[in-house]
Amino acid sequence: IRLYEREDYRGQMIEFTEDCSCLQDRFRFNEIHSLNVLEGSWVLYELSNYRGRQYLLMPGDYRRYQDWGATNARVGSLRRV
């Protein structure tokens, strides 16, 4: 999964292949505005340590956080399923 700091895949990008319990420890931002799921399925959590609202993401492109059903861009952790 590739996470981007801004909409439309702009700004700083980070790629994950494994679970991350605290996004801010690995990426200086806690807001993700766009992403690409390259393979497999992922769950994004609004808070760190896999807490808060959850969003199940299938392979595909998500140009804005609204595309995955979120009401804001906050992402605290993520897990591959």
Rank of each mutant, 00 (worst) to 15 (best):
S41R: 11
S77D: 00
N36F: 14
Q12W: 03
L23Q: 02
S34D: 00
E7N: 01
G60Y: 03
W68S: 12
R79E: 14
E39M: 07
C22G: 10
E46P: 03
Y55M: 07
G11C: 04
R63H: 15
R51L: 11
L57R: 02
R79F: 02
G76Y: 02
G11A: 11
E31Q: 14
L78W: 09
P59Q: 12
R79L: 05
D25S: 04
D19N: 06
L23Y: 15
R2D: 02
G76S: 08
M13K: 13
Q66N: 06
W42M: 01
D67L: 06
F27K: 09
L78E: 00
M13S: 12
G52R: 01
N36K: 08
S77R: 00
Q24P: 11
R28Y: 09
R10S: 04
S34R: 01
R79V: 05
A73Y: 10
Q24G: 10
D25C: 02
N49F: 04
C22W: 05
F29I: 05
R2V: 04
I14M: 13
Q12R: 07
R74M: 02
L57M: 11
I32V: 14
S34N: 00
Q24F: 06
E39I: 08
T17E: 05
Q24K: 13
N72A: 06
S34V: 00
L47W: 12
G60K: 11
L44S: 03
R51A: 08
T17F: 13
F29Y: 15
D61R: 05
N49V: 02
D67E: 12
S41C: 01
M58C: 13
Y4W: 03
N49C: 04
S77H: 01
P59Y: 02
W68Y: 03
R10W: 08
V75N: 03
G76W: 01
R10F: 11
R2M: 11
S41P: 03
S48W: 03
N72Q: 11
P59D: 15
Q66M: 07
W68R: 14
L56Q: 07
Y45R: 01
I32C: 11
H33W: 10
Q54H: 04
N36T: 04
R10K: 15
Y62F: 04
G52Y: 01
R74I: 14
N36S: 14
Q54R: 06
Y55W: 09
E46R: 02
N36M: 05
Y65E: 15
G52V: 00
R10H: 02
T71A: 11
A70G: 07
N30M: 07
A73V: 13
R6G: 09
G52T: 00
L35P: 00
R6C: 13
L35I: 15
L78V: 09
M13F: 10
A73Q: 13
D25Q: 07
R53N: 15
D8R: 11
C20I: 07
D67A: 05
G52Q: 01
R51T: 12
R74F: 08
L56G: 10
G40W: 06
Y65C: 04
E46V: 02
F16L: 13
V43W: 08
W42A: 01
Y9C: 15
L47D: 15
R64Q: 08
D19G: 12
N72K: 06
V75E: 00
D61V: 06
D61T: 08
M13R: 06
C20S: 09
